[in-house]
Computed example of a mutant assay.
Amino acid sequence: MNPPVVSIVAKSGTGKTTLLEKLIVEMKSRGYRIGAIKHDAHSFSIDHEGKDSWRLTQAGADTMLITSPEKIAMVKRNPNDQEPPLDASIQTYFNDVDIILTEGFKRSAMPKIEVHRRERSPRLLCRGEEHDPTLFAVASDEPLELDVPVYDINDANGLCDLIETRFLS
């Protein structure tokens, strides 16, 4: 059985990562094991040119693992440059966590919390031109009248209470 997944969505520069950091810290303080997935629509590299791991990947390794007593990192080439389905990545890499918090995946069918900042955009992604039924809360820097609960953008404790009630009880 897969752990529950909650996606934090917003327009770029709204504060998704900042909210995720706060949620992870709060959920860890409650004793949960947390998985995190960051969606990147562009190409990225965790290798640094000239380092051994980079050299091995450049040489053609399809999977390259770096291990240490503290952590493990993997670089795995996607066949045919196709991003695998999120469900497949979750089944493969996240069987040891209680919940997964993602950043991005705004077009997915996962339950979502949208981050809203008045100065960034007057309209929400999930309650703008389209009505996303997977939205279950908004973290905002201004009061909003919506069909889902609205939390202060800094209320990680309240949002974690909601996540716990909905997904971990």
Score class of each variant (00 low, 15 high):
K22C: 04
G31F: 06
A41T: 14
E119R: 11
D40G: 12
E119N: 10
S108M: 05
R107Q: 13
D96E: 13
I113T: 04
D96Y: 09
I90N: 05
E26W: 11
L101N: 01
F44R: 14
I153W: 02
V138I: 11
S43Q: 13
L135G: 00
D62T: 13
I8F: 14
D96F: 06
A156G: 12
T102C: 01
L159Y: 03
A41S: 15
K51R: 15
F94Y: 15
V75Y: 06
E164S: 14
T18P: 00
L86C: 02
M74F: 13
E129C: 00
I90C: 12
S12A: 09
T57V: 14
P122V: 09
K51F: 15
D141T: 05
P79Y: 08
A73Q: 07
H48W: 02
E145H: 11
D47P: 12
D132Y: 04
M110L: 15
L159V: 02
A10T: 03
E26K: 09
K28D: 00
K16L: 04
H131C: 09
S108C: 12
I90F: 14
S29L: 10
M1Y: 06
E70P: 01
M1G: 08
F44G: 14
T14I: 10
P133E: 13
S89E: 14
I113A: 11
T63A: 08
E142L: 00
K71N: 09
S140L: 03
I66P: 02
K106H: 00
M1D: 06
F136P: 06
R55A: 11
L135I: 01
A41G: 15
G15T: 04
I153N: 01
D62L: 15
L135A: 02
S7Y: 07
I100A: 12
E130H: 04
K51W: 15
S121N: 14
S53H: 06
E114C: 04
T134M: 15
K22G: 13
K22T: 01
G31V: 04
I153L: 11
G15N: 01
T92W: 10
R107G: 05
N78G: 03
R120E: 07
I8K: 11
N80L: 02
D152C: 06
H42E: 07
S29F: 04
A156D: 14
L124C: 02
L144P: 07
T92R: 15
F136W: 03
I34C: 09
S29T: 04
E119G: 04
T67C: 06
D47S: 08
D141Q: 08
I100N: 10
V5M: 04
R118E: 15
A36Q: 13
L159H: 04
S140E: 00
K28Q: 12
K16N: 08
R77L: 10
P143H: 13
V9I: 15
F94C: 09
V6S: 10
I72F: 05
D155K: 09
Y32G: 02
E103V: 02
T17Q: 04
I163Q: 13
A10P: 09
G31I: 03
S169D: 06
I113S: 03
N80W: 00
M27Y: 00
P133S: 14
A109E: 15
R55I: 13
H116Y: 12
H42Y: 14
V25L: 14
P84W: 14
R77E: 13
